[in-house]
Design a binder for these strands. Sequence first.
DNA 1: CCTACCGATCGGTAGG
DNA 2: CCTACCGATCGGTAGG
Lengths: 233, 233
Amino acid sequence: MTARKLSPAAGGAVVAPRPRGRPRKTADELADGNRRRELVAAAGRLFRQQGFDATSTRDIAAATGMRSGSPFYHFDSKQALLGAVMAEGMAAAIARQEQALREAGCDLIVLLKKEHEMPNPRRLLAILVRNHFDVLLGPGSDFIPVMLYEWRSLTDAQRADLARLQRDYEAPWVPVLAALQRAGQLRGDVKLARLMIFGALNWSVQWYDPAQGASLADLADAALALFVAPDAA
Amino acid sequence: MTARKLSPAAGGAVVAPRPRGRPRKTADELADGNRRRELVAAAGRLFRQQGFDATSTRDIAAATGMRSGSPFYHFDSKQALLGAVMAEGMAAAIARQEQALREAGCDLIVLLKKEHEMPNPRRLLAILVRNHFDVLLGPGSDFIPVMLYEWRSLTDAQRADLARLQRDYEAPWVPVLAALQRAGQLRGDVKLARLMIFGALNWSVQWYDPAQGASLADLADAALALFVAPDAA
DNA sequence: CCTACCGATCGGTAGG
DNA sequence: CCTACCGATCGGTAGG
């Protein structure tokens, strides 16, 4: 609730006409939102580099040009900042993945319903894998390593929220992998296969170095070749 | 140097005959060695559960029945304790892997030399994978998750030492994977395949729950089925 | 969002 | 290996 929404009490104060449509944010609110986003970005970077416990709220404040107490104006606690880094990262990753599937002419809901008549599951997996490497290793992507390293620093409630987001992210992978298994292009238990494929991809945050030559597309190609038999000719 | 090794100075002290062969440890030295090992084991467990920064040297001392300052009688610093957890874990894993290969009738040195006439590389990979799951998820194995989570907490010198141990551990995998690729049972770039296979296996520390039903042998079977085409009939 | 501050905890040490 | 301790740092808060 902003003060603007309160009815003016008795007295002759001039009342501005209520704006129509989406209410515009004041300059202050805009600045606040930006500051908050700056804090989340700086925290993500520092949590990734140094770890949650080794990063002080003073470090984060300094990286955002604030004084030591000011992050607590935006977040109740250091833990809440950690949760925001992960939750906002996951939300962005889900949106990005849905966009990638849409661009490939594939609606998620259709995907889940028409699982048994999926025309080219290998191509869909290629899209998911390629997009996942972007989420993992692309510019400004700190939140997945932070999730990996700092899961144990979360409260139970935060963990439950994030598990739900993870399930949403993994949802499109399930029917695609099932279709590949029915086509005989993926061997072994589907659930274990999914866990191991995510492991193979996610582990790249430990070793990937763009200066070493391989591109993200190379990684995606290698992963696909390793896991999925080629389409029949 | 123990006091026992000093020549008795002037005076009528009775001199015990110098023992032959490997000098026996005194009860005190034995206890010291045990205490040191207890510290490493407790530190490994706590570092895994809570993280390096979130574990105080007081926690470790208490878990070993010591007072707060006493770990520093055995280790110069908390960092040195972390290094010991990882280095001793890796050394044990290397020894265990060599033993597993020996039991399969396969000498490591022979393996590296006769790479081009390897009779059954899929069986060898099965042994390596099965043993790796034991190292990762078997009882009392805390050091690999600690390596995963706390690599950044090491000094450069410690990192170099551990990288060497990791290379030793991975050495037998290289010729086995190369042989599988020559046999057409492994697709894609060998180096990337090795990295992704280790990722798929290592990631299991994030999700494996023995109470969920799957055994370590099940995991090994699923991994092998996923990565390696079956032997020709 | 800043200033000034608090209580708690931490890694490590001296001396025995 | 214990006792007693130090200086530093930390998350968080009151009041503005």
